[in-house]
């Protein structure tokens, strides 16, 4: 193995590239945003086009508690991120636990909302266009919350058993990024479904 020496430019500065997990997660988020956009467009396009009732204004109630929980979970996970970066593992576990509790509260809220809609108001996915678009959009978001919850819970379990430390902070950063995305999407879904569409 021989090397050749040539005239070379001044040495480039130190070689730093972004963390691949974060890049991958950002790419995933870009794609997911497109999926959500399509469902949101469908929702908006079909607003008021249902042939039969019930209409959104008849049955929807604004899920204030769930929304507060979900939005504040962005805050708690941010604290958890800071904690893991500084290797404060106790604090990390606590903030992560808080995030999980908030997420579960949100899901319970959605579940009870759906229960009311189905049993009390008789709105199912096949009732009318509103039912179809509503359950698809909110359900798609809820699915993402569930996936995020699974990721957070596994991180939580690892940290309970002391298997996480600041060396994993970049990885956890990617998970947190996903969670922020899920929250951000909720802001859109919430405004479209409960504010504009009602």
């Amino acid at each position: 193995m021989s090397t050749v020496s040539t005239r070379l430019p001044v040495r480039a500065a130190e070689w730093h590239l972004p963390y691949k997990g974060r890049v991958g997660m950002s790419a995933l988020i870009a794609g997911e945003s497109a999926i959500f956009t399509i469902f949101v467009v469908a929702y908006v396009f079909y607003l008021g086009k249902s042939v039969t009732g019930p209409r959104p204004s008849d049955v929807l109630e604004v899920p204030i508690i769930g929304t507060i929980c979900l939005l504040s979970s962005s805050l708690t996970i941010w604290r958890a991120e800071r904690a893991i970066e500084d290797d404060r593992m106790g604090s990390f576990t606590a903030w992560l636990g808080a995030t999980i509790v908030l997420a579960i509260t949100f899901l319970i809220g959605t579940a009870s909302e759906w229960k009311k809609l189905i049993y009390q108001d008789g709105l199912t996915i096949s009732t009318n266009l509103f039912g179809t678009t509503f359950y698809s959009l909110v359900g798609l978001h809820a699915t993402h919350v569930v996936i995020g919850l699974a990721l957070l819970s596994s991180a939580f379990l690892f940290s309970l058993f002391g298997r996480v430390d600041s060396r994993q902070s970049e990885r956890f950063g990617a998970v947190a990024l996903y969670w922020h995305f899920v929250d951000g999407v909720w802001v859109v879904v919430f405004s479209v479904v409960y504010l504009i569409g009602r």
């Binding site: 079909y46 996915i125 266009l129």
Partner: peptide
Amino acid sequence: IDRYLGGHFFDTQAGGS
């Protein structure tokens, strides 16, 4: 969703497009 859950996204009978 239309084909299996009875949704109406593209069901012209139910106002779909």
